[in-house]
């Protein structure tokens, strides 16, 4: 213990005083860090797509993420995070891809939903969501004619595996869906989006590379489908990743990118 009273008279004394604030990590911390390399590995992943549209999710639901989702929607699986063991990963025959700052896994096998984790989602106003989540996000300032939404977004409640995901939806009278999922992005530890084979293209969003994905996982069959009806553009802006999905026959790729480019 050091008594600093009246002892900080110059810079050297201040330096010594600051250094005296250093502490020794406890044995418990050493044990925790040592245990890290022994624990089964977990990867945070996002499975993209899955349909049998178009029932919209009920609000305030506790979702069994990545569980068989007959009748649930694209929207649900967009917020699907899977934690899989190395053994499961090895069976997927997957290839890791990076487009711009977007990290993806290409596989022809739908991720095993049996190891899904649970995510609770709450519905709230955009303003409340901005107060809650630990990142700053924007919404598109332009929506194609006919698409309408509310001021309500879904926010996944984080647990030890999954961080916050904000989900906004708009739809038109014909049932076409536009959905934006937003979460924090870290280059050192990016969330990986799982997509099917032959589904990726490189596009530009405001001059930066972005991933264009055609299709989504069909949950009952486990196949990658609907490559003509579902397109998603994924891009990273600052420390935030955005995934803008269009399902239906309304929007072209150019129109989808136009919407994406208004997220600033």
């Amino acid at each position: 213990m050091t008594d600093l009273n009246e002892s900080i008279r110059d810079d050297d004394q201040l330096k010594q005083a600051l250094l005296s604030l250093r502490q020794v990590p406890g044995p418990g911390l050493h044990q925790r860090v040592r245990a890290i390399t022994q624990a089964p590995e977990a990867r945070t992943r996002l499975a993209l797509g899955a349909f049998l549209p178009l029932k919209l999710l009920p609000s305030n639901v506790s979702q069994r993420i990545a569980a068989p989702i007959v009748g649930l929607v694209i929207a649900l699986v967009l917020t699907t995070f899977l934690v899989t063991s190395p053994v499961v990963r090895a069976t997927l025959g997957e290839i890791e891809e990076a487009i711009g700052r977007v990290f993806l896994i290409v596989t022809d096998v739908m991720p095993d939903s049996s190891e899904a984790t649970l995510i609770d989602e709450e519905q709230m106003t955009v303003e409340d969501a901005r107060d809650l989540v630990p990142f700053q996000f924007s919404l598109p300032t332009y929506l194609p004619e006919g698409f309408a939404g509310t001021d309500i977004v879904g926010v996944s409640i984080p647990n030890e595996v999954v961080a916050e995901v904000v989900r906004a939806q708009w739809h038109d009278e014909d049932g076409n869906l536009l959905e934006l999922c937003i979460h924090a992005h870290a280059d050192i530890e990016p969330i990986q989006t799982i997509v099917g084979p032959d589904s990726l293209e490189v596009v530009q969003v405001n001059g930066s590379e972005a991933a264009l994905v055609r299709g989504g996982w069909d949950n009952p069959s486990g196949e990658w489908r609907d490559q003509d009806e579902t397109i998603t553009v994924i891009w990273v802006l600052g420390d935030v990743q955005y995934s803008l999905l269009s399902h239906g026959d309304r929007l072209s790729i150019d129109e989808l990118i136009t919407v994406a480019e208004t997220v600033r």
């Binding site: 213990m1 050091t2 600093l4 002892s7 005083a17 406890g26």
Partner: peptide, 17 residues
């Protein structure tokens, strides 16, 4: 425990930081 053992001045300096 280790923080309780800090002197008042150290705690104050930590707060100033």
């Amino acid at each position: 425990e280790s923080q309780i053992e800090e002197s008042e001045s150290q705690q104050r300096l930590r707060q100033l930081v």
